[in-house]
Design a protein around this nucleic acid. Structure first.
Length: 476
DNA sequence: ATGTCC
C-alpha cells in the first residue's frame, strides 16, 4: 500500500479516515516498509470491519496483518453490546483459540549437544501431527462435555500435566461461559479422536534456544537466560473449532437481514451480542477455547514424556499460554469511562500490561508474556505487554511473522526435501509428515518476524524481552 | 486453519 494514502499519526501508526459506511476510523500499526509490503486487501478489510454495528473507537490492524476471511488476520475490533454491538465468527477465525505456549526446560544449549537427533525422533514419535491426525483419547459425549467446560483444568484432572501449569494459562486454564450444549454433533464427532494432536499448516512444536535477551529484568521474572532451551507449541482447536466457525458463519450470514445488519462482505457475517444466535456462538466459541487449551495441555504432557526418554534431567515448566484467535469480554476504558467490550483478536495476541488484575501474581509487575511464533527455521520472540497498549489496541499485539506469499505460490517455489536438508545444514532439525506442508511453510514465504516485532515495539503495543532460534521443529 | 469440496 502507498504510505502517502494514509493519515500518519506517528512513526508506526497509520489512519484510514472514516468514509462511506465506516462508523470509526481504521488504524494500522506498522512501519513504513511493512505498510508498503501489505496487500491493499488489508485496508479494504479494515474499512469493512469499521462498518459493523457497535464497533468502538477504531478498527485496528497489527504489524503482521494480512488478508484473511472477512476480518484481516492481525485484526482487532471491540464491540459494545449495549450499542447494538456484534460478534463475528469470521472475526475470530476458523481456528478458534489457536495460540502458543512456551515451556521452560531447565536445560542449557550444552545439555542438548549430541542428543538433538534422538530428541527430534522422540518428539516426532510422541506428538501426533498432520491433517486429520488422531491422538490417544476417544471422547464419548459426557467426557466431551467435561472437556468443553473445563479446558486445561479438565486435562490436568485427567492426568495431563500439573496443577501448577494452570496458573500460567490465560483464563487460568478454563474459559468461563462455555456452553457445550451449543457445540453441534458434527463438531463433537470431528474432535472425538483429535485431542492431543498438533494439526497441520503453520502449527508446530519447536525446541528453541534463547539466543538474545533485550530486557534482562523482565527476562529474569520470566525465567529466561541466554543459552536456555525452551519448547514452544503452536496449535489450536483442530476440527472442532473449524466446524463451529463454519456452521456459525453460515447461520450468521443467513440471519443478518433479520438482525437488520447490512453486510459489505458476506465473510463479515455477524450477529448482535444480545441476540440468541450471538449468545449461542459465544457459548460455542468459548467451548472451543477450552478445547484448544486442553489440546495444548495434553501436548505439554506428551512433550514431557518425550523429553524424559532422552534427557531425564529436564524439568519442563510452563512459562505461559496465549491464544491469538478469540473474542473476549473485557473491561476497557474508553474516553474516561470503563465499558465491557467484546474484543475480537484474530491473529492478534492479548498483551495485558503491568498491574492488570487478570494476570497471575508472577506477572503482575511486568505485564504478560506475549508469545510470537516465527516461521519454520526463523526466530521466535517473547515480548511483554505494556500499559499503553490498553489505549492503543485494547491491549493487543502482533502474533507472528505473517505470510508474504500464498501456500500455493510457496509450494511451487520450494521443495520440502530440499528445505529440510538446507535447514539441517544450519543445525535445525525438521520432522514432518508432509513434504508439501514443509514447502508451504518455507521461511521465504513469510515476512521478517524481526521487522514485525520492531514495529510492535515502535507502536507501543509490546516490548521485546528475548529472541529464540529453532533447534528442532515438529511440523504438521 | 480445515476429515485442504457434503
Amino acid at each position: 500500500m502507498d504510505p502517502a494514502s494514509f493519515e500518519r499519526r506517528s512513526d508506526c501508526e497509520w489512519e484510514v479516515p472514516p468514509q462511506g459506511g465506516m462508523r470509526v476510523p481504521g488504524i494500522i500499526y506498522a512501519d513504513r516498509a511493512l505498510i508498503e509490503a501489505m496487500d491493499e486487501k488489508v485496508r479494504e478489510q479494515v474499512r469493512n470491519v469499521a462498518t459493523l454495528p457497535g464497533i468502538v473507537k477504531a478498527s485496528f490492524a497489527m504489524p503482521d496483518a494480512h488478508w484473511g476471511y472477512g476480518f484481516p488476520i492481525g485484526g482487532v475490533a471491540a464491540f459494545d453490546a449495549a450499542e447494538g454491538g456484534v460478534v463475528s465468527a469470521g472475526g475470530v477465525g476458523f481456528d478458534i483459540s489457536c495460540g502458543v505456549r512456551t515451556l521452560l526446560t531447565g536445560l542449557r544449549r550444552n545439555d542438548l549437544q549430541g542428543h538433538e537427533q534422538r530428541l527430534a525422533d522422540a518428539l516426532f514419535a510422541a506428538i501426533p501431527a498432520g491433517v486429520g491426525s488422531t491422538g490417544h483419547l476417544r471422547l464419548e459425549d459426557r467426557e466431551m462435555d467435561a472437556m468443553l467446560a473445563g479446558g486445561a483444568r479438565w486435562a490436568v484432572q485427567r492426568g495431563y500435566g500439573e496443577a501448577a501449569d494452570l496458573e500460567r494459562v490465560e483464563e487460568r486454564g478454563c474459559m468461563a461461559g462455555a456452553d457445550p450444549g451449543a457445540v453441534s454433533g458434527r463438531a463433537r464427532q470431528r474432535q472425538r479422536d483429535e485431542m492431543g494432536t498438533l494439526g497441520s499448516g503453520n502449527h508446530y512444536l519447536e525446541v528453541q534456544e534463547v539466543v538474545d535477551i533485550q530486557d534482562p529484568d523482565t527476562a529474569a521474572v520470566f525465567g529466561l537466560r541466554q543459552g536456555d532451551i525452551v519448547v514452544s507449541i503452536h496449535c489450536g482447536s483442530r476440527g472442532l473449532g473449524h466446524q463451529i466457525g463454519t456452521e456459525f458463519l453460515k447461520r450468521m450470514a443467513l440471519a443478518a437481514p433479520d438482525h437488520g445488519i447490512d453486510l459489505p462482505d458476506r465473510e463479515l457475517a455477524c450477529a448482535p451480542l444480545e441476540s440468541a444466535l450471538g449468545r449461542e456462538y459465544l457459548g460455542a466459541m468459548r467451548a472451543a477455547i477450552n478445547c484448544a487449551l486442553a489440546n495444548r495441555q495434553i501436548l505439554t504432557h506428551l512433550t514431557r514424556m518425550a523429553f524424559f526418554e532422552v534427557l531425564p534431567q529436564a524439568d519442563l515448566r510452563l512459562l505461559y499460554d496465549v491464544s491469538h484467535n478469540t473474542c473476549k469480554e473485557e473491561p476497557h476504558e474508553v474516553e474516561g469511562r470503563t465499558r465491557r467490550l467484546f474484543v475480537h483478536r484474530k491473529g492478534a495476541t492479548r498483551a495485558f500490561g503491568p498491574g492488570h488484575p487478570d494476570l497471575p501474581e508472577v506477572f503482575r509487575d511486568t505485564g504478560q508474556p506475549v508469545l510470537i511464533g516465527g516461521s519454520m527455521g526463523t526466530a521466535s520472540w517473547i515480548l511483554v505487554g505494556e500499559a499503553g497498549s490498553e489505549q492503543r489496541s485494547f491491549a493487543s499485539a502482533c502474533h507472528g511473522a505473517g505470510r508474504a506469499m500464498s501456500r500455493h505460490q510457496a509450494a511451487r517455489r520450494w521443495k520440502g526435501r530440499q528445505l529440510v536438508d538446507e535447514l539441517a545444514g544450519r543445525g535445525i532439525l525438521i520432522r514432518s509428515v508432509s513434504s508439501r506442508g514443509v514447502a508451504e511453510e518455507a521461511p521465504g514465504a513469510y515476512k521478517d518476524v524481526g521487522a514485525v516485532v520492531e514495529a510492535a515495539r515502535c507502536a507501543g503495543l509490546a516490548r521485546p524481552v528475548a529472541r529464540l532460534e529453532p533447534v528442532v521443529c515438529i511440523k504438521g
